[in-house]
Structures are given as C-alpha cells and as structure tokens.
Design a protein around this nucleic acid. Sequence first.
DNA 1: GTGGTCTAGACCACC
DNA 2: GTGGTCTAGACCACG
Lengths: 122, 122, 122, 122
Amino acid sequence: MDIVILNSSEKPIYEQIYEQVASQIVNGGLEAGFCLPSIRTVARELRVSVITVKSAWEKLENDGLVHTRPGKGCFVASLTPSHLENARTERATERLRKELPYYKTLGLTKQELLELVEREYD
Amino acid sequence: MDIVILNSSEKPIYEQIYEQVASQIVNGGLEAGFCLPSIRTVARELRVSVITVKSAWEKLENDGLVHTRPGKGCFVASLTPSHLENARTERATERLRKELPYYKTLGLTKQELLELVEREYD
Amino acid sequence: MDIVILNSSEKPIYEQIYEQVASQIVNGGLEAGFCLPSIRTVARELRVSVITVKSAWEKLENDGLVHTRPGKGCFVASLTPSHLENARTERATERLRKELPYYKTLGLTKQELLELVEREYD
Amino acid sequence: MDIVILNSSEKPIYEQIYEQVASQIVNGGLEAGFCLPSIRTVARELRVSVITVKSAWEKLENDGLVHTRPGKGCFVASLTPSHLENARTERATERLRKELPYYKTLGLTKQELLELVEREYD
DNA sequence: GTGGTCTAGACCACC
DNA sequence: GTGGTCTAGACCACG
C-alpha cells in the first residue's frame, strides 16, 4: 500500500489516494480478497482526515473494485481478468477523453499527437 | 468571435470561453492585432458575468496569446508562425509529460496508448 | 420538495432524504432540468448538517438521477421514459430481494406471500 | 444445528445466525424443549466471537422462540402449531405493512407488485 | 449565492 | 479493533 500525496497537486487528496489504490488493483498489484489497511491506519500514516480516506474508499466501492464490510474491513473485489482488462481500458479511455480537447484546442492533428506520444513515451 | 457555452458541460464557463478563443488564435482564425470585443460586450452576449469573461481574458494574457491595453482593449498578440508552432508543441509536450505516468501506472504499453489515441481522436 | 425526516427511523438520515427525492424523480414528480434546492437550503430547512444532504445528493448522482454542476446547482437528469421505468423497476426489485429472505425465514411459501400482498395492499 | 456463515454477506454475522436458527424453529426443524448448544460451543465451531452468538440468542429470546435458563441452557420454546402459525403471519404482515409505502411511492400498482413477487421469489 | 474539499471530534453497531 | 453516520466550522473555486 504505497500511497504518495502531493499537496502541491491540484487534485483533491481523496482522488490521489483513490487513483493510486485503483491503479494497484487493476494492475493486479493487490490480489482479490486482500484486506486494505483500515481507513484510520491510512489516515494516520498519510496525516489526513479519516473522512478523506473514506471518500477514496467509497469511490473504489462505487467502481466495484472493493467491497466494504462494516466492522470487518475493506476487501479487494474478485475481478476476472477480463473485468480487470475492461477496468484498465475504461479508466485510460476516460482519462484520455478528458485530455483530448486540450490538444485539439492547441491545433494538434491526430498524426501530430501520435508522433508526440511516440517520441515522449520513454 | 464565435463562442458557445454549454451549461451542461462539466467545465467551468471561463475555461470554455478561454479554450475557444485560444483555439481560434493559435489556429490563425484571429489575426495578430485583432481587437477582441470588450469584456462587457462578450458578457452581455453570452449572458454571463463580467468576472467570468475577465477570467478567460486573463488566462489568454498569461499564455501570451493576447495583450491587454487598459483603456484601449485586448489585442491578439503578434506571433510569428514559428513562434506559434513552438508555443503549441511546447505546451502539448509539457502536458503529455505530466499525463504519461498515469497511463504507465495503469500498465499501458506505448503501443496500447497509441492505439487508444488512434481510436479516441475523433 | 417535500421531505420528511423521521428520527425514529432506523435508516440514516441521508438515506431517507435520498429515497424521497429519488422517488419523486422516478415518478416524474420532478421534471428533467429542474434545479434542486441548494444543499444549504435543504440542510437549514431539515435542520441537518450540510454534509448529510450532500451525501444524499451524491447518491442521486451515482444513480444518474441528477447532475451536479459546481457553482450552479444540482439538476434533475433527463431520463427517457424507458430509463425511468427501468429505474423504478430496478429500485423495487432491489428492495424486494433484500426483503424476501425475511419472509422465507418465516416459512412463507410464495403463495402465502402473494396472498399477503393481495390482502394488505390497500 | 446447521449454521453457515458467509463473510461475504452484507448481513451482520449475528443476524445470519439468528435467521437460520429462527427459521429452523418456526419450520419445526427444532422441537420444543430442544436444548441449543452452548454459546461457547457455537462460537468455537463457527469461529466467531462469543458475543456475536450471544446477540443472536438474545434476538431469539426477544422473539419468544427460545427460553434461556441461566446455568442450564437455552431451550426451544414450546409453541403450539397455531401459536407458530399466528406468530408467523403476524410478523410477516407487520413487516409487509412497513414496506408497502415504499413500493407505492415508487408508483407500483398492486398488480405490478404481485408480478414482482411472482418473478423474484425463487 | 453555489458546490467541493478538508478538518476534528463525536457516538453508534459490529467483531 | 473495524466501518457508518453525523455534527460544526473552515477555506476554496465558480458565478
């Protein structure tokens, strides 16, 4: 459970937490059934409010990536490989769709964007 | 100065205005020296607050796309084609570099990302 | 926007609010595009915390029943009649599925339950 | 005393235990006077806390389904068939009456509700 | 004015 | 110990 918070980021803290945990799940870094550390533990370690962590956990729940059992804890959902693949692609697509208008505004053609990706992806 | 505002959009209004004007400038739709309509005029036509338009104009100023002369108006900056080209590529590259880590943590290979761009760029 | 809160209820306040608004939407009592009263207004009137109302609004958003636009307000989503019908049936089915085990535990057969409904539905 | 606990269930464990035992009693699976295994025995077998089992036993006691004799054990109450039948119907009716308003506010007609029950009762 | 985020601190049910 | 709910109060971005 490596989570890094950048206070300098524009993104809300709970989203930073959400994204990093979600990434680890869809990448298979966290196995199905794995019990996430308690919101209180995470809150203490990251030095944020309990509610902030809870917001992140709730987003994961909404995505169907985890199942929260009151009194027990929060467990990584058992997703089939195809589910995982879908989740990955879906998240990537969603992100890209939000970014594309920016490049279009700049006047980049599809070809130019492809070349840019080709060049910058290390 | 065609600007369309979608209240249903998630994007803040001032950003919608900014992006559309910026797009017209970098794409050559608005020539250097062109005097943008006054903030009040735009605000009236779009039926939004003056402050909202001002935010957009400020963003353009920050990007060096326009120069505001208090009491005279807001003029499209004179950028040589190469300047424009450089500015465009530089900003696109900068943006992409910030985004790439996201796709990498999702486990997307360069090839997968290229295909995604290919598919999503309408 | 008639909302009644029963402190005697076992249900959390935010769920009571959510259910009542959701009902009004799926029943067509609130038209698409209608702007819900602000969370602060509702909170004041119901004498509950702003956050409690916000939780209810978030649930509605998750169900796709409303769209929240920061700085503008929370608007009833435009759902087609079939969407509405689906939403209604889905909500009813979900509720019933949670209740059925109770009657089964009591040993009621399907026939007995049907007769009970027949008799009690005024 | 067959009790199965699903940790994946949303229901609290003590309720799962309660429902299964209650079901066996009202259905005649456990005869009047039968001495339930001790709390500690059940707790050990199900690998849950003693307190959890105690909660379930208390709920049974509240329902009048068992009588606990401190120091002796917990015995299934002697209910005549008609008593059982009355208890069953009464509890089912009470429950249903509380639920009906929910379906009505959703706009379900009696017919639709009957069909829903018909369809969902497995 | 609107909603979005975050905090600290409280009480509850469940295990 | 766990998560669930609720409160009061704060600051921010947007209009």
